Simulated assay, not measured.
Amino acid sequence: MSRVANPTKIPRGWSGDASGPTVSLFLGRFQGSGHQRDDFTIISAFAQLERDQLSERTKAGMAVAASHGRKAGRQEITAAHANVKRARDLKTQGLKPADIGKIIGASRATIYRYLSMEPG
């Protein structure tokens, strides 16, 4: 179930004391007095600012990494990869894909994928 659908209590004030008055959120609608609404708006603004800063830092870090020649994500496996070559060698020796997978440390489906790659 979504957090929005569950009642959430946010302590009022910046002291962290949960024994004071609280602001209730239920089903995505704000329920509280004017001051509580103002406090909630300020907290929401800070949360949005933090999310925006995190996004900017992530994008900046990825741009720096790209300028140094690094790409995000998994490395592409080609027919020239050592595991693909080893799987082919073991297959020519007569081993089954499941046994090749145990030797190489890959799943049987991955071995089938390796064996279906065009050599080159």
Rank of each mutant, 00 (worst) to 15 (best):
Q48H: 14
S24R: 05
H81C: 01
D52I: 08
I43P: 01
L49A: 15
A47I: 14
L54G: 13
R57A: 09
A80G: 07
V84A: 12
L90S: 06
D17V: 04
K102T: 14
Q75N: 11
M1K: 13
H35R: 14
L95D: 04
Y112A: 10
F46P: 01
S33W: 02
A106T: 08
G61D: 02
L27T: 05
E56A: 15
G73Q: 08
M117P: 05
S107K: 13
R88K: 11
G13Y: 04
M1D: 12
V23W: 02
A18I: 09
S33G: 11
S107L: 12
G105W: 11
D38H: 06
G105Q: 05
R57N: 10
A60W: 07
Q75P: 11
A72Q: 05
R86G: 04
T58V: 02
S19Y: 00
E118A: 15
Q75Y: 00
L115Q: 02
H35V: 12
T8F: 01
K71G: 10
P7D: 04
I100H: 04
D39Q: 07
A106V: 15
T22K: 00
G20P: 00
E118S: 15
Q48A: 15
G34E: 15
K91I: 00
G13S: 13
G20F: 01
G32P: 06
D52W: 08
A65Q: 03
G61E: 04
D52S: 10
K59G: 01
I104A: 07
V23Q: 03
A45W: 09
P21T: 01
R29K: 10
D89K: 08
T8A: 14
G13V: 07
I42Y: 03
S116W: 01
S33K: 10
L115F: 01
Q31D: 03
H35G: 04
L95T: 02
S107N: 14
A106G: 03
D39E: 15
E50D: 14
A65R: 03
Q53K: 12
E50L: 12
S24P: 00
D52V: 12
I43T: 03
K85S: 02
G120S: 11
V84C: 09
G94T: 06
S15E: 04
S67T: 09
F46S: 08
T22D: 03
T8C: 09
S19C: 00
D89G: 11
G101E: 06
A60K: 15
I111L: 09
A79S: 15
S44I: 12
D39R: 01
R57C: 07
G120A: 14
M117A: 12
S107E: 11
S33Q: 06
E50Y: 07
A82F: 11
E76K: 13
P11E: 09
